[in-house]
Amino acid sequence: MLSIRNLSKTYASGFSALKDVSLDIAPGEIFALLGPNGAGKTTLISIVCGLVRPTGGSATIGGHDILHDYRAARALVGLVPQELTTDAFETVFATVSFSRGLFGKPRDPARIEQILRDLSLWDKKDNKIITLSGGMKRRVLIAKALSHEPRMLFLDEPTAGVDVELRHDMWRVVRGLRDKGVTIILTTHYLEEAEEMADRIGVIQRGELILVEEKRALMQKLGRKHLILELAEPVAAVPPALAAFGLERSEDGTTLTFAYDGGPSRVGDLLRELPAAGVQVRDLKTEESSLEDIFVGLVRGK
């Protein structure tokens, strides 16, 4: 659906916002682009959507080049920007209808009504946007982006500053769109959001795409699991018989922690050898790295 090849953006000041980025996104996929502030997420989206001119490379949407065949390419795309930029004095219905026209679609009040109902905006249809809360304005931006029935939706930090209820509402909407075959690319600071929704994850840092991976594979490959053994009696040191497992002893000696990755583990071996090593376990629990832990590790260069 989206194919990016060696895309670069260097500003006149010499600052490289994007360096040789290549990426392919399949139809119907939810792709989360993660990265710290200023990493190049918005620049990448802005180039693909036509807001920023690339200084190198190319991109196609649905096979249409974003520069040479921009009409066909842009007609497939909806963009929800990061900033709450709206026409303050327009009504909700008018501004969403305007967006539909802008993308070359004839008026369709029934279609607009459906979009507004899906986003719980129908009862606000005659309200001026200036009177809406921040969360409602965010919904209006999504409604505008969906007004022309795009095949690909860019969500640039869609849930920034919205409450938990609205965030879950938006996740529901996004999943509904994916079910209809819409490709979704979202940038987010909420790793929980990427973990909850994305099929694949890309991590961008200092303008470079440093990783693209299936979410499950990423969490399996880079995620760490911990088996925490709570001991019946504290130990003064890790028994020599268990040295091969690289256990970590707590300061008070009441717990031993076994860290292992997402691949084949030696948990069974460890449990079998505990009695022989004279260790009695009172309880045990496991902990798993979150996407947040993985992300922090990646951007810190671990």
């Binding site: 959507c49 036509g50 807001l51 920007p81």
Partner: peptide, 14 residues
Amino acid sequence: FVGTIYELLSAPVS
């Protein structure tokens, strides 16, 4: 000024 120009620039409008 208000930033809504993003919509025009990202639309299939010549």
